[in-house]
Amino acid sequence: MTIVMGIIMHAGNAKALAHEALEAAKAHEFIKADNFMQESNKALTQAHNVQSDLLTKEAQGEHTDINLYMVHAQDHLMNAITYQDLIKEMIVLYRKQTN
């Protein structure tokens, strides 16, 4: 359960920080937006590292039980990745708008 909660927590933080970056970009505060995206990337990396540890253990023969909680955690991670990708593109558009 600790592993699942780690993925959910870090992925949720990554998504929330990406949203903060979007809000900063809307206000044309691009340095602030960049800082939020850097923090979002760090949180996403933490979530991804937890997932990578699971994959490594699986490859080494240490099976992890898959349950609804694990599926939910993976869902959070994939949503955070997708959301962050979308926010990056939106920030580029906001930057172009100011030029």
Score class of each variant (00 low, 15 high):
residue 76 H to Y: 10
residue 32 K to S: 11
residue 80 A to K: 00
residue 62 E to M: 12
residue 5 M to C: 07
residue 99 N to L: 15
residue 92 V to R: 11
residue 38 Q to I: 09
residue 82 T to F: 10
residue 61 G to S: 02
residue 82 T to D: 11
residue 49 N to V: 06
residue 90 M to P: 01
residue 11 A to G: 03
residue 16 A to Q: 08
residue 91 I to G: 03
residue 13 N to G: 09
residue 4 V to Y: 05
residue 78 M to S: 13
residue 54 L to D: 00
residue 27 A to K: 14
residue 37 M to Q: 02
residue 16 A to S: 14
residue 91 I to D: 00
residue 51 Q to A: 09
residue 34 D to T: 10
residue 61 G to N: 06
residue 60 Q to E: 13
residue 36 F to M: 05
residue 72 H to W: 06
residue 14 A to K: 03
residue 73 A to F: 07
residue 37 M to W: 04
residue 92 V to A: 07
residue 29 E to N: 15
residue 42 K to V: 12
residue 17 L to E: 05
residue 22 L to S: 07
residue 44 L to Q: 04
residue 15 K to P: 00
residue 71 V to T: 10
residue 27 A to H: 10
residue 40 S to P: 03
residue 77 L to N: 01
residue 56 T to M: 13
residue 57 K to Q: 15
residue 22 L to A: 06
residue 75 D to N: 12
residue 44 L to G: 00
residue 70 M to I: 14
residue 12 G to S: 04
residue 92 V to P: 00
residue 62 E to F: 11
residue 36 F to D: 02
residue 27 A to E: 12
residue 81 I to K: 10
residue 64 T to P: 04
residue 6 G to H: 14
residue 31 I to M: 13
residue 86 L to D: 03
residue 74 Q to H: 11
residue 96 K to Q: 09
residue 47 A to Y: 03
residue 43 A to L: 05
residue 73 A to K: 02
residue 84 Q to T: 11
residue 4 V to Q: 03
residue 86 L to A: 06
